[in-house]
């Protein structure tokens, strides 16, 4: 794979993710708008207009272009160290072109590096295992306002009367949605990680955001719980931006990780309405964006 090509593909992936809402998200926002009235409806209308203007002018949908989280599946012919350099170059260039806001701040000195590179930034998860010549790069831009709405519970939780069972899990998710109000830029999507350790539980919750919004969980128990939680949360009348209304979340997506007997974590991540995630697939030297 030519380095120059990979640099260009990655830059385009970043541009696409930052400026063009994925079609499934836009469809869900349209459906939410059509079901609303009054201020909730006009708020969703503004959001959809903004998404359209961002796409047409190739400008970031939201000024908080978030943390860059990449998941990279690749074949044995690709060298991770070389690929890493391509990712870093693409991120620098995207920042120079104002497709990304400089978002890497040193928590000790308070200094912004100005180019989105820093300790642990961008986040790169490499997974070898694809056939030679194949590459898949998934990118999520996770904004800070929505990330601040994430919450992790350790069951049992006495204050929620949440035991170590699925009823307890449900109580946690409802509580997370209530606490989030409109702060995460509702209507958002909730990613839920059940089990795991503190880190992998949150990781599972984030990876749920790569699922299409309109899919159905392959686990029938989780599928039923996702549906019930979606309906319940939308009865809270928090609404778009927390102004009131029926569209509080667009989706609830749940996944599990086996836990040790002593721990039972429930992690909830919040994705804002400006739900930015895209995928680049390369095969036989041809790039396709999803």
């Amino acid at each position: 794979m030519e380095t120059q090509k990979l640099d260009e593909w990655l830059l385009e992936l970043i541009r696409l993710t930052s400026c063009e809402l994925a079609p499934d998200v836009e469809r869900a926002l349209c459906a939410a708008r059509d079901a609303e009235q009054g201020r909730a409806r006009s708020t969703l209308d503004w959001m959809l207009r903004n998404a359209q203007e961002a796409r047409e002018s190739s400008m970031p949908i939201c000024q908080d272009t978030g943390s860059l989280i990449f998941y990279i599946d690749h074949g044995p012919d690709l060298d991770q160290e070389q690929m890493t350099q391509s990712f870093l170059r693409a991120v620098i260039k995207a920042t120079e072109r104002s497709l990304l806001r400089p978002n890497a701040v040193d928590p000790v000195s308070g200094k912004n590096t100005g180019n989105n590179l820093g300790v642990g930034a961008p986040v790169l998860h490499f997974h070898p295992g694809l056939a030679a010549g194949k590459l898949s790069v998934r990118l999520m831009l996770k904004g800070g306002g929505s990330e601040n709405c994430g919450v992790q519970y350790a069951l049992p939780d006495g204050s929620l009367q949440a035991g170590r069972d699925l009823n307890g899990v449900k109580r946690c998710v409802l509580d997370a949605a209530l606490r989030a109000q409109g702060f995460g830029c509702a209507p958002g999507t909730l990613g839920v990680g059940i089990g795991g350790d503190r880190m992998t539980s949150f990781q599972e919750s984030k990876e749920q955001f790569f699922r299409p919004l309109d899919d159905v969980n392959t686990d029938p128990i989780l599928a039923a719980m996702e549906k019930e939680l979606l309906e319940s949360i939308n009865q809270l009348e928090i609404g778009p931006m927390g102004f009131g209304g029926q569209s509080t979340v667009l989706g609830v997506k749940m996944g599990l990780r086996h836990r040790v007997p002593a721990s039972y974590f429930v992690s909830v991540s919040y994705m804002c309405w400006a739900y930015r995630r895209r995928c680049l697939q390369v095969e036989n030297g041809q790039a396709v964006y999803l």
Binding site: W46, N50, A54, M59, I61, C185, F243
Partner: peptide, 13 residues
């Protein structure tokens, strides 16, 4: 005054 979150292009204009 509440501006709509994520309305970045419209508000920048």
């Amino acid at each position: 005054l509440h501006a709509i979150g994520g309305l970045a292009v419209i508000l920048a204009r």
